[in-house]
Amino acid sequence: MEAKFNDICTRLFYSGLLVAMVTDRDGVIILKSVSEGAKENMTEPTIPTTFAITNNQASVVVQKIMSVYDKYQVIQLDQSPLIITLIAESTANTGLFMNLGDNLLELTEPLVEAMKE
């Protein structure tokens, strides 16, 4: 699964993808793929854990969220108990990364099922 995850993500580095990671709700990284252009702090657990806390407090469960911060866009997908986080350049094609997120949801589904047992 790790090789497939990395293969899918590295193909999109040229399109502006900087970081793709799958974490648990505490921010523990399970899978990650990082481009050479990514800043070191982009893989810190702050981003996925903030999403988890916010989503837990919301009255409705949010499946996907897209944010823009400074020069970056952050796309997060809830796949309880996992969170998929994609960080890309703000000028990159958001739809491309939303599709990537959907592909990663499918790829990690067996892992989610195993964690639920």
Score class of each variant (00 low, 15 high):
Ile53Asn: 07
Pro110Leu: 09
Glu117Phe: 10
Val28Pro: 01
Leu105Val: 14
Lys116Met: 11
Val19Ser: 02
Asp24Cys: 08
Tyr72Arg: 10
Ser59Trp: 11
Thr85Ala: 10
Ala88Val: 15
Ser67Val: 04
Val28Asn: 15
Gln73Lys: 15
Leu104Phe: 05
Ile30Asn: 02
Leu104Gln: 05
Ile53Ala: 14
Asn41Asp: 11
Lys116Gln: 09
Val19Glu: 03
Met42Lys: 09
Glu40Gly: 01
Cys9Arg: 07
Met98Gly: 01
Leu96Val: 02
Lys4Arg: 14
Asp24Arg: 06
Pro45Lys: 13
Asn56Trp: 02
Met1Leu: 05
Ala38Met: 06
Asn93His: 15
Asn56Ile: 01
Leu111Ala: 07
Glu2Asp: 13
Arg11Gln: 13
Gln63Ala: 08
Leu17Trp: 04
Ala52Gln: 02
Ile87Arg: 04
Glu44Phe: 12
Asn93Ala: 13
Lys4Phe: 10
Val34Asp: 03
Met21Ile: 09
Asp70Leu: 13
Leu86His: 08
Leu77Gly: 01
Ser35Asp: 14
Leu77Met: 14
Ile75Thr: 11
Asn56Phe: 09
Ile30Lys: 13
Asn93Gly: 08
Val68Ser: 14
Glu36Met: 04
Leu107Arg: 04
Val112Ala: 06
Asn6Ser: 12
Glu106His: 07
Pro110Trp: 08
Asn93Ile: 10
Ala58Lys: 09
Tyr14Phe: 04
Ser67Trp: 01
Pro48Ser: 03
Thr23Cys: 11
Thr50Ile: 07
Ser15Val: 05
Asp7Ser: 14
Pro81Asn: 04
Asn41His: 12
Leu107Ile: 05
Ile8Met: 13
Gly95Tyr: 04
Asn93Lys: 14
Glu117Pro: 00
Glu106Thr: 11
Gln57Met: 13
Asn41Phe: 10
Leu100Val: 04
Val62His: 07
Val19Gln: 04
Asn41Glu: 10
Val62Glu: 05
Ala52Arg: 06
Gln79Arg: 09
Lys71Ile: 05
Ile75Lys: 00
Ser33Pro: 03
Asn56Pro: 00
Asn55Trp: 04
Lys32Ile: 01
Lys116Ala: 03
Thr49Leu: 11
Glu40Lys: 13
Asn55Lys: 03
Asn103Pro: 03
Leu104Glu: 01
Gln73Glu: 14
Ser59Thr: 14
Met21Lys: 13
Val112Trp: 00
Leu82Trp: 04
Ile47Thr: 14
Asp7Arg: 13
Val22Glu: 05
Ala88Pro: 00
Leu31Pro: 00
Leu107Asn: 03
Ser80Glu: 11
Val112Met: 03
Leu104Gly: 03
Lys39Ile: 04
Pro45Phe: 10
Gln76Lys: 07
Val61Asn: 09
Leu18Asn: 08
Lys64Cys: 02
Leu111Val: 10
Val62Phe: 06
Asn103Arg: 14
Ser15Gly: 00
Thr49Glu: 08
Ser35Ile: 10
Val22Thr: 12
Thr50Tyr: 05
Gln63Gly: 06
Gly16Phe: 08
Met1Asn: 07
Asn6Pro: 01
Lys4Glu: 15
Ala88Trp: 01
Val62Gln: 08
Gly27Ser: 09
Met66Asp: 05
Ala20Pro: 06
Ile75Ser: 11
Glu109Cys: 03
Thr85Trp: 09
Leu17Arg: 03
Asp26Thr: 12
Ile30Met: 09
Ile30Phe: 08
Gln57Leu: 15
Gly16Thr: 06
Leu31Asn: 11
Arg25Gly: 02
Thr108Leu: 12
